[in-house]
Design a protein around this nucleic acid. Sequence first.
DNA 1: GTCTATATCCAGATAGAC
DNA 2: GTCTATCTGGATATAGAC
Lengths: 201, 201
Amino acid sequence: MTPRNKELNEKVKDERREQILSNSLRLFAKKGLAATKITDISKATGISQGLLYHYYKSKDEIFIELLREGYNKMIEAALGLESLPLTPLEKIKMAIEKLLQGFEENKDTAYYYLLINQASIFEAIPDEAKEIVKSRSLLHEVITRIITAGQKDGTFKNYDPKDMAVVFWTSLNGLAIYNAIQGEDFKPPDANILIGIFIED
Amino acid sequence: MTPRNKELNEKVKDERREQILSNSLRLFAKKGLAATKITDISKATGISQGLLYHYYKSKDEIFIELLREGYNKMIEAALGLESLPLTPLEKIKMAIEKLLQGFEENKDTAYYYLLINQASIFEAIPDEAKEIVKSRSLLHEVITRIITAGQKDGTFKNYDPKDMAVVFWTSLNGLAIYNAIQGEDFKPPDANILIGIFIED
DNA sequence: GTCTATATCCAGATAGAC
DNA sequence: GTCTATCTGGATATAGAC
């Protein structure tokens, strides 16, 4: 086998792994880890159940990889947002709008939220998954910093910034769930309603 | 067997059923329907696995009964709130405070939320459970009516009342989830933060 | 009513042929 | 790489003894 073919094969393998991940994300989000059968995933991907083990060594491994992926995306987005040359208010507005828009345009965004929720709430998930969700506090910290800055410059209300960050995240999480439940019927609420948490308008 | 004994036996049976329900609620909320094994429930209740089938004919039946119970409690609470002789603002304040307080004092309140979420999100739940969660819209309608009244009397902001009801419910739902995740560490955020969704303060 | 034993089924994972 | 066949374990539900 020439190096060229080797490279091509690797690419094909990666693509197949991508397909598996993508199908698993939807299934895990809509059925939950325990209720999603390995055959559900193989059927959705159009391969035999045995072949799936050629790409991943267990159902848990797929779940963990997706969870890690989801977390990384969120943390990157949060840190990216924080570093933009914007006022705190503009940052919060942008976060809310981007997320609501993301929910509407691409179901994957909301699916990742559902995965993280599962991993956070449920006890019966792999240890490695539990480890990943512990980093949740990082996201709270980013938002808390932005809120504190917004209070310093006088634009934000003066409640405990940690409380405000909790309300911020739990509200968006609640909306992600609502979006997943509504499916195609989802219509995002006016972003200004949520911004009322932070400022007088 | 005298009627007196019959009555007593019925009572004992009801109590045992109550214990099973109570343990199942916690387990279903924390592990999910699919990952909760019938032996988990019997162990928690301190009875043999076989005996459980004397009280309920399947795991699904227990789940459905709990779901129905949770819904009835919420709808009763919502309708009760609506009929109180209070202003719309007072009603909303009361709803938020009572719920946050309920989350803190009694984990069952949040567990019911988690059950309803599972039933709403997951596809792999019994048909009868799906039917129950369809009545969710009733709760939205009650809050929408209160919001509309608050807009008429000029105290509430003038966004689409349906959007505001969505934000209201999804926020509280998000907080219920957060509470369940935090467990004993849960400290409810200042209720006034949420009230900022509705009014200028 | 309560338990232990067991029938039945199904799912995760592996083995081996092509 | 891909499939079919199979092993193994575990979970639901039932049966039957006490």
